[in-house]
C-alpha cells in the first residue's frame, strides 16, 4: 500500500480553498425552489409541489 502518512489529507494545499465560483450549484433543484422564506431567519420554504418533486426524484428519478 502507499505510505499511510502520505495518504491523510486535511484540505490543505488545496487549489479550491480560495475559490468563489461554484462548480455544482443546485439552484435549479426541486428542494431549493422556495415559494417563500420563513420570517426572520429567511430559511427557504418550498411549496408542497416542490416537496413532492424532490421526493419523487429520490424515490424514482435517480433510479439507483
Amino acid at each position: 500500500m502507499k505510505n499511510k502518512n502520505d495518504f491523510k489529507f486535511q484540505g490543505k494545499d488545496n487549489e479550491r480553498l480560495g475559490k468563489i465560483h461554484p462548480t455544482n450549484r443546485e439552484g435549479t433543484a426541486a428542494w431549493q425552489n422556495f415559494e417563500g422564506f420563513y420570517k426572520v431567519d429567511q430559511v427557504g420554504k418550498p411549496s408542497e409541489e416542490d416537496v413532492i418533486e424532490a421526493k419523487d426524484w429520490v424515490d424514482n428519478g435517480s433510479k439507483l
Binding site: M1, K2, F7, K8, F9, Q10, G11, N14, R16, L17, K19, I20, H21, P22, T23, N24, R25, E26, G27, Q32, Q42, G44
Partner: peptide, 22 residues
C-alpha cells in the same frame, strides 16, 4: 499502491462545490 481499493481520508475538503443558493 492501492490495488486493494484503499482510498485516503478527507478528500471532500478539496471539492468546494458551491451548492447553496443561500
Amino acid at each position: 499502491g492501492i490495488e486493494d481499493g484503499t482510498f485516503p481520508s478527507g478528500t471532500t475538503a478539496y471539492e468546494k462545490r458551491g451548492i447553496a443558493v443561500n
